[in-house]
Design a protein around this nucleic acid. Structure first.
Length: 295
DNA sequence: CTCCAGGGATGAT
DNA sequence: ATCATCCATGGA
């Protein structure tokens, strides 16, 4: 198969795909296979170029937000040790522009699950209910439309290992399929109104709503606070406080990280999970120190 | 306010 | 092989 090419400076494909935003891409050959909306895609990075097939250069560039002024965004981050370390670690990581329903549905299933589980559920929902296509020798399944999941049963969804999330996903799929929740129309709402609408949906709380705003509505201020981020924030920005309330954290993030807080959050999150020798010493406690030292 | 469902991977023993 | 832990929402 002939691959198309695209210049993609300031972009790290593998890092972006592995940063907890999307859960369906898989490593194949020298690259990655996944779906962008209904289309199967192969993408491979060689230096500052992307070699790809399955979609147009425009679609690929839009999905991976190659138009985001990454250098400028990083320069505007607050200047503190935690943020600087995260920025150095996350070079080329971009916030993906995901399809709205796919992102919402996936993050509803994400509650109380770790990345490996979310991948499994996404995969199960796709193979069970999604349309199958082929790219570069691999099968790829699109994420099922709201109407498709709306006519599934809760038991069928539970068989995709969703547990109690099945009920929430089904209820939300029905609201979206019936047009009572118009995800596309919500794109023009201001941040606070959009967040309030999202939080009305079954299975969507503040954290999931902020993920959807950041990953599917281009709201780069949205700052999802999960346990990883909470630990980082408490440890790095409130080191000698014994009790920090969720309210305090929220207020701090809103002002301190500013206009591109979502990017800052993504970098802190990815650095905490993947880098810097961060490890869980005991429940709720992260340790950062030099990784090479054991034994 | 507290408690807990839910469930499969992950890492420690 | 067993065991504790990870995870966020919603309801009791």
């Amino acid at each position: 198969m002939r691959l198309l090419q695209l210049s993609a400076p300031d972009f790290d494909l593998a890092r972006t795909l592995d940063s907890g935003q999307v859960f369906h891409w898989e490593n194949r050959r020298a690259g990655h296979v996944g779906a962008i909306g209904p289309k199967a895609v192969y993408a491979e990075q060689r230096g500052e170029r992307l070699f790809f097939a399955g979609v147009s250069a425009k679609t690929l560039a839009r999905y991976f937000s190659l138009d985001h002024p990454l250098a400028e965004i990083c320069r505007a981050f607050p200047n503190d040790p935690a943020m600087s370390a995260a920025r150095d670690f996350c070079d080329g990581l971009r916030i993906i522009r995901q399809p709205r329903w796919e992102c919402l549905a996936t993050f509803i299933t994400s509650s109380m699950k770790q990345v490996a589980h979310i991948r499994q559920m996404s995969q199960a929902l796709r193979t069970q209910f999604g349309a199958r296509t082929m790219i570069y020798g691999s099968h790829v399944y699109a994420f099922p439309a709201p109407a498709r999941l709306a006519r599934a049963t809760e038991a069928e969804l539970r068989r995709c290992a969703l547990g109690y999330r099945a009920k929430n996903l089904l209820a939300t799929a029905r609201l979206v399929a019936r047009g009572e929740a118009n995800l596309e129309q919500w794109g023009s709402l201001p941040d606070d109104t959009l967040r309030a609408h999202l939080c009305e949906l079954p299975g969507v709380g503040a954290k999931v709503a902020n993920c959807v705003m950041l990953f599917a509505y281009e709201r780069l201020r949205a700052f999802p606070i999960d346990v990883w981020i909470e630990r980082v924030l408490k440890q790095k920005y409130f080191p000698r406080k014994r009790k920090v309330t969720a309210q305090q954290l929220r207020a701090f993030c809103e002002t301190y990280f500013g206009e591109h807080g979502g990017y800052a959050q993504q970098y802190l999150f990815h650095h905490a999970r993947k880098g810097g020798g961060a490890q869980v010493v005991r429940p709720g406690v992260l340790r950062y120190d030099s990784p090479a030292r054991s034994r």
